[in-house]
Amino acid sequence: NRKDILLACPMNMHPQADPNKTPQEIWEDFSLSFTPAVREVVEFAKHIPGFSSLSQNDQITLLKAGTFEVLMVRFASLFNVKEKTVTFISGTTYSLEALKSMGMGTLLGTMFDFSEKLSALELSAEELGLFTAVVLVSTDRSGIENVKSVEMLQDSLIKALRTLVSKSAPGDVSRFTKLLLKLPDLRTLNNMHSEKLLSFRID
């Protein structure tokens, strides 16, 4: 019954599907925001110094594995912890209770936790950009041909991030550590999200 289709991802217009729309139309509506968002991640990656000198296979492999982690950082602010709301791409805001009553659960709660911890670090735009680059190159390495070059790129980005973070908050040594601890959080989120994706098929 189409009325019961739950669209948990806030890149949909609304969490409940329009009952008059076919699954294909629902998917096309979603891809109107999903596809540009993925393209944006690719454009972002092209601007990471050193990323374009990786092999094409390794660029694609990193992007496939890391796109959702980057999007979770990029859209973390849609999950408003103070208000306990999620803003969908239409601009409409839904309370945590309402979304839970629709059937959303652990992934939603984990995303809220992540959003809360990330915003607590009060990153500047520059810090957030460099952190996002670290997220992408720190993603799962399955299928990577030249692990050494990816590790070298990761190393240089982490060094740059440490320099930037310590410059803006010299006294707060723990800030950089807390930031790096977001990486395993993102991996957990990504694994939970992947589980949901497995149950989703587009034909």
Binding site: P36, R39, V42, I60, L63, K64, T67, N191, L197
Partner: peptide
């Protein structure tokens, strides 16, 4: 997870964006 992202055609979008061959679809 074998390749959950393939359910969304992620690799295709990435390849096209990387190669710069963006379909001219009305945004």
């Amino acid at each position: 997870f074998s390749d959950p992202a393939s359910n969304l055609g992620l690799e295709d979008i990435i390849r096209k964006a990387l190669m710069g061959t963006v379909e001219e679809r009305p945004e």
